[in-house]
Structures are given as C-alpha cells and as structure tokens.
Amino acid sequence: MAPSTSPIILAEGLSKTYRVAAKDPGLAGTLRHFVQRRYNDVAAVRDVSFQIQPGEMVGFLGPNGAGKTTTLKMLTGLIHPSAGKALVAGYTPHRRQANFLRRITLVMGQKQQLLWDLPALDSLRVNAAVYGIDDAESHRRIHALAEMLDMGNELKRPLRKLSLGQRMKAELLAALLHRPEVLFLDEPTLGLDVNAQARVRSFLADYNQRFGATVLLTSHYMADITALCPRVLLIHEGRLFHDGSLEALTQRLAPCREVRLELAEPWPLDSLRAYGEVESCEGMVVRLLIRRDALTAAVSQLLADLPVRDLEVRDPPIEELIGRLFVQGTLS
C-alpha cells in the first residue's frame, strides 16, 4: 500500500525503559527499602514502529501493562522515549511546542481535566482562553459539539451532579474544543453503560468523518474497536505483534472457523472427522473447527453428504482469541 500523503503519526523503534523501585513485602522489606533503594529496569515499550495516515482510526489493543499508555504518552510528549523516534503532525512530541499541542488532544477515561465543583462551561471558557479561541467562535464550537454529543443543559450544571456518561461527554467536548487533528483516546468509554458507550462511539465516528481527524484509540471494550477501527495495532509485553485489519488479526489468531451443524439424525463421530476437527458432538448438534482455506469446500461437502437441518459458520469471539493469546503469551 503506497501512502498518498505523509504519515501524521510516525513511530520508529520507539522504546521506553522505566526504573522501578524493587521493594520486598513486609515491614523488613519496607525498612530495607527506606534505607537502601534498589531499582530494576523494566522495558515498557520495545522497538515499536508504525505509521498512521491522516484521517485513519486505529485501535490500540493489548492487556493491562502491555505498554499502550506508555506509547500514548510518548506520542503526546508526556514521556521522553528511551530510544527511537516519534513524529506527530510533523513535530517531535517531547519538545511540547505550542503549535504541536494545539494539534493534538489526549482523553483519559480514568482522569478528568474539568473542574469538579463547577459547570463544564466554566472550564470550557478557560480552555478557550488558553487556546486563543474568541468568544463567538468558542460558542459556535461548543454548540456544535454539544449537538453532536447530544448534550443540553448538562454543561450548565456542576460537574459533580452529572452522571459518569455525561461527564465523559463533557470531557470529550473540552478535549476537542481546539479542534485537534490528532486524537489520542485512552479508554474513553471506561465504566460507561452500554448506551453511553454507543453514544461516545457514534460521536467519535461522526467527528472523524466531519473533521478528518486521526484517532488512536485504546479500549478494553472490543465493541469500540470493531465499530470504529478498520485497523488495529496489537501490543504485548511492549512489542508490536500485529498491525493490520481486525479480520487479519482474527485470521492470525484463529486460523480455523467454527461450523455448527444441526443434523436430522445422529451421525457417527468417525465419519465427521473427515471434514475437520470435532470440537463437540452432543446428540444431533455438532461443532467442527475447519481451516479457513478449506472452509468453502468443506461446507458444500457437508451439505451434500449429511442430513443438515441448520448450519452456522462463525468466528470465535475476538475477546476470547486475544485473551487466549495473552494467557499463552505467544503468537506464531
């Protein structure tokens, strides 16, 4: 794939090593730690490289502690990389130049920037001043974003009186007031109920469409990723394992698909084995695992040979696949 434009996010051999205090448990360990501190080096991100084109929405997957947040922090300039290079919107993030900061935003699901005791509008007015947006323009933008987010009077109520979902929407509004080109979203739907999640999701898709913004999104909820991100980056133990479409990831993680058959009459197990690996056979319901490349042929064969009442082909759920990968800790 030859990119028509230059990438808006570029990571080249990005690495980060932390020094972490090593403390034994218990009182003795605490005292020893107080007198003589020992440290271990922990590699949080190792040699990660990828490119993201303007306007792309990319999902960033990985278990807790895989290095997602560290990578986001390097790309936003909050942390200096230990090695490698990052380039976002043409800037080196960790220099945190004002013109760079105006082009990006970071939303963290578990942290808030809005003032707890005041209506979001007050915080928004401060942000407008910080970014040098005049009153008329900031009114226009707040109105437009509030409409996209389906928000009304909530912006005038003290933040502490809002629900978690309403607060998250207000946070998004605050993070997007300066109309950034690059959005780094770290668990933006964390803790939200299903409806609120869906609302945030459709807003992000809408925002991406309308402003052509580039989005790099981490989420624990696979539904966020499947709904928004045609492309995913999968990171595990600090290393990049996959960069490509979600389907390709599924194929890589699960070379087989599951075929569920409902038969009109019981069938001998041995002859079923000819079509694929038999996962289960309970009465007249059979579940087979069949390699993707042999799937079409196997299915037509099954339909021709057996008294099939119902046939269903499906992928094992992606959560399960990724979960399995992280338990095994390997990827072929």
Partner: peptide
C-alpha cells in the same frame, strides 16, 4: 498524585 499533571502539560500555555 492523581496523574492529572498530564492535562496541564498538554496545554499550550
């Protein structure tokens, strides 16, 4: 303590 210094550092001010 709360890690919200990040928001301050990301403002162009």
């Amino acid at each position: 303590q709360q890690g919200t210094l990040d928001f301050v550092l990301l403002k162009p001010i």
